[in-house]
């Protein structure tokens, strides 16, 4: 068994796991300043102590319906020296996971395929392991 620590979360009702070393912290984002004309998946900017973070609308980025009650839970990650807050429905736990390959024949969809590095299982629920840097990077790649 080769287990590594992962942060467990839900986005659009789907369970995801993010390797803990890619996560700087988890926070509640309170107020967001809009950045008009930026990419639609950019909610805006928020202050996190003395840092300004770019808030990522994960649902928009993954083509999922946004939750009815706006969530403010976010995973803070640093990509290319910039702090990003990746919004999620809920944050559950940090747990060691045994990551295996995604079951063959399963079509995750274009958006998910590019950011998934593997899968795991926890309490019977299947999880996709997400490369959060790629998730953030896909904004710019998508143009």
């Amino acid at each position: 068994m080769n287990e590594t620590l992962h942060l467990l979360a839900h986005v659009g009702g789907r369970a995801i796991a993010v390797p803990a070393d890619a996560v700087e912290s988890v926070v509640d984002i309170s107020s967001i300043v809009k950045a008009p004309r930026a990419h639609p998946a950019v909610r805006g900017l928020a202050a996190l102590r003395s840092r300004v973070v770019t808030v990522i609308d994960t649902w928009e980025l993954l083509g999922l319906p946004a939750p009815e009650e706006g969530s403010c839970r976010a995973i803070i990650t640093v990509v290319d020296g910039h702090h990003h807050a990746v919004l999620v429905d809920t944050l559950e736990d940090v747990a060691p996971l045994d990551v295996v390959a995604v079951p063959t024949g399963l079509s995750l969809g274009r958006r998910w395929a590019g950011i998934t590095t593997g899968s795991a299982e926890r309490e019977g629920e299947p999880l996709l392991v997400i490369d959060i840097a790629r998730l953030v990077g896909s904004i710019v790649a998508a143009g």
Binding site: S31, V33, A35, P36, R37, A38, H39, A41, V42, L45, A46, A47, S50, R51, V52, T54, I56, V79, D80, H82, H84, V136, I139, V140, G143
Partner: peptide, 21 residues
């Protein structure tokens, strides 16, 4: 961040004392 830079309208971000970016 590049995603915001892509708007082509912004040169940077600042954090004034109010704590609102």
């Amino acid at each position: 961040a590049p995603a915001v830079m892509a708007a082509g309208l912004y040169a940077g971000q600042m954090l004034p004392d109010t704590g609102v970016p």
